[in-house]
C-alpha cells in the first residue's frame, strides 16, 4: 500500500489552511501578500539558475543521441531528418516536436490481432492528459498576466477572449481552468490506480499534483463561488511588479491568499524537484544532439589519457609466433 500521497495531500491542505487562517484570522496579509511572493520568486530564480548552471557545468563528453529513425548515409537512402537528425535544423525540429508536442510520449502504441491482421492502436491517454495539462497550465499562466500588466496588451486580451469563448455564465467560465483541474486530477488518479505507476510513485510525485490541483481549485472557487475583490487582487499584483508593494484597503478575501500562497510554494518548490524537467528537457543529450559524430568531430573536454596496449608491446609478446606464421613484424 502506497501511502505517499497522504503526506502530500495533507501538506497541501495544511499549506492552504495556513494562508487562509493567516490572512483572514491573524491578519498577516502583508506576509502572505507581499513578503512571501517576493521570497518565492527569488528562490525560484536563484534556484532555477543554480540548477541549470549545475547542469551546464558538466560537459557533454560524447554524442549519444537516441536514433529513432534511418541515419543519413548513402544519398539514395531516405534518412529520417527529425528522428535521427544529422544537422542542427533537424535537431531543432526534433526538440520542438518534443517540447511542444511530446512526440516521444506519443509513440506509445498497442498491437492487437483482429482476424488474422495486426492492428495498431495508439495508447494516447498519458500523452493526451499530459498535453492537456501542460497547455491549459500555460494558458492559465498567460491569462493571469492581466493582473500584472497595465495597460493589458492585446495578445493577453485575445487569449482571455478565446479561453472564455463559450460565454457560459457570469463571470464567464475559462475552459483552461476546468481542463487544468480535470487533467491534473486524471494524472493523479492514474498514479493512484494504475498499479505499476502507483508502485513507482512517491511523495515527490504526488505533492506537485496536489499542489497544482489545489491552486486550480482555489482559483476556480474564488472566481465562481466565493468571489474575491478582483480589482483589489490586481492592485496587489501591480504593487508587487512595480516594486511599490501595498495591501489594498478593501479585503480581497482569504481564499485569494490561500491561492497566492500555494502558487508561491509551487514556485519555490520547482528548483528542488522533478519539476525542473521544464529546463531539463532542453538539455537532454539523447535528444538535443545530431547523430553526426561520424561526419563531424565531437570534442570531449576531459578526454582521459588511458593506458593502451601498443603494437610494440603486442609484437614483443608474440613476435616468435608471428614470424613462424609468416606474419610481417616490425623488429626481426
Amino acid at each position: 500500500m502506497n501511502v505517499h500521497y497522504l503526506y502530500s495531500l495533507l501538506a497541501v491542505i495544511i499549506l492552504g489552511l495556513i494562508a487562509y487562517a493567516g490572512s483572514e484570522g491573524a491578519g498577516l496579509t502583508w506576509l502572505f501578500g507581499l513578503v512571501i511572493p517576493y521570497v518565492a520568486l527569488l528562490i525560484f530564480i536563484v534556484g532555477f539558475a543554480n540548477r541549470v548552471w549545475g547542469w551546464a557545468k558538466s560537459p557533454v563528453p560524447f554524442r549519444i543521441p537516441t536514433t529513432a529513425g534511418q541515419q543519413k548515409s548513402l544519398d539514395w537512402i531516405k534518412s529520417s531528418s527529425i528522428d535521427n537528425p544529422s544537422s542542427t535544423p533537424g535537431v531543432i525540429m526534433r526538440m520542438a516536436l518534443e517540447i511542444f508536442l511530446f512526440r516521444s510520449l506519443f509513440r506509445n502504441s498497442r498491437v492487437e490481432i483482429s482476424g488474422d491482421r495486426l492492428s495498431y492502436k495508439w495508447v494516447i491517454w498519458l500523452w493526451l492528459f499530459a498535453i492537456l495539462f501542460h497547455y491549459s497550465f500555460l494558458v492559465v499562466v498567460i491569462r493571469h498576466m492581466r493582473f500584472f500588466l497595465e495597460p493589458i496588451p492585446f495578445v493577453i486580451l485575445m487569449i482571455d477572449k478565446v479561453d472564455s469563448i463559450f460565454q457560459v455564465g457570469s463571470p464567464v467560465v475559462y475552459q483552461s481552468g476546468v481542463v487544468l483541474f480535470a487533467a491534473a486530477t486524471v494524472l493523479l488518479l492514474r498514479r493512484v490506480f494504475v498499479p505499476k505507476v502507483n508502485y513507482i510513485s512517491r511523495a515527490a510525485d504526488y505533492f506537485p499534483l496536489f499542489l497544482i490541483i489545489g491552486i486550480a481549485f482555489t482559483g476556480i472557487v474564488m472566481r465562481y463561488f466565493a468571489k474575491v475583490d478582483v480589482v483589489g487582487a490586481k492592485e496587489l499584483a501591480m504593487g508587487l511588479v512595480t516594486f511599490s508593494p501595498g495591501i489594498p484597503d478593501a479585503s480581497i478575501g482569504g481564499i485569494f491568499y490561500a491561492h497566492l500562497f500555494l502558487v508561491c510554494v509551487l514556485l519555490a518548490y520547482i528548483p528542488f524537484s522533478k519539476l525542473m524537467h521544464m529546463g531539463g528537457i532542453f538539455l537532454s543529450p539523447t535528444r538535443n544532439l545530431a547523430n553526426n559524430s561520424r561526419a563531424k568531430r565531437h570534442v570531449n573536454p576531459w578526454n582521459n589519457p588511458v593506458k593502451v596496449h601498443t603494437y610494440e608491446e603486442y609484437e614483443d609478446d608474440f613476435r616468435d609466433k608471428m614470424i613462424e606464421a609468416g606474419l610481417p613484424v616490425e623488429k626481426e
Binding site: M1, L9, V192, F193, N198
Partner: peptide
C-alpha cells in the same frame, strides 16, 4: 488495491470538504 482506493476516496473527500468549507464560509 481496494484498500488503497477506499482510503484514497475517503481522504480526498475529507480534503475537498476541508477546502470547500473555506468557500462555504465565504459564501455564508
Amino acid at each position: 488495491m481496494e484498500n488503497t482506493r477506499r482510503k484514497f476516496l475517503k481522504l480526498t473527500g475529507v480534503s475537498v470538504l476541508g477546502l470547500s468549507s473555506l468557500s462555504v464560509m465565504d459564501v455564508l
